[in-house]
């Protein structure tokens, strides 16, 4: 028969402490894992599909005559334009010449780069000036007044 002495009670204490500490390490592992399972911060619906901060009816020049500024789309400025017939288009607002940010001139129906006088039409094609390539166009999906911009 086993006799109960100090050593045994020490084992008992050790075992209980061990169970506690092992549980603590398990929790320490479970915490990051559970946090990892949560959806990522900041982005709404994936890095390449973003709900624009403007509604369709907000796409017009404000009191100062400014067109809504490009917004952050996966680290690139995205310019939204609205043609007179109501078509909404989205472009990468980085000029293909020397990477200035282009603006939309709704009165002249073109996209203009202030830096070196580059002009693009509403399809992003170069009309005049130094830009070597057309602007990169993004896909636009309308959900009511909401504008969803995506890159395939």
């Amino acid at each position: 028969m086993a006799t109960r002495n100090g050593s045994s009670s020490r084992r008992k204490w050790l075992l209980q402490a061990l169970i506690g500490v092992v549980s603590a390490t398990a929790a320490g592992i479970a915490f990051p894992v559970l946090a990892f399972l949560r959806p990522r911060r900041q982005l709404v619906a994936g890095g390449l599909e973003v709900v624009a901060p403007y509604k369709v009816n907000q796409l017009e020049r404000d009191a100062n005559g400014e067109w809504p500024a490009p917004f952050d789309f996966g680290g690139k400025p995205c310019l939204l334009i609205k043609k007179p017939d109501g078509t909404v288009k989205a472009f990468n607002a980085v000029c293909t010449h020397l990477e200035c940010t282009v603006t939309y001139r709704s009165d002249q129906q073109d996209i203009f780069c202030n830096c070196h006088n580059g002009v693009f039409n509403t399809d992003g094609q170069t009309v005049s000036g130094p830009p070597p390539k057309p602007l990169e166009e993004y896909d636009v999906t309308l959900r009511g007044e909401q504008i969803i911009v995506s890159r395939s």
Binding site: A17, L18, V21
Partner: peptide
């Protein structure tokens, strides 16, 4: 995180 691990190792 290393605290419980160190304790676990010692124990």
């Amino acid at each position: 995180f290393l605290v419980p691990i160190a304790m676990a190792v010692v124990l």
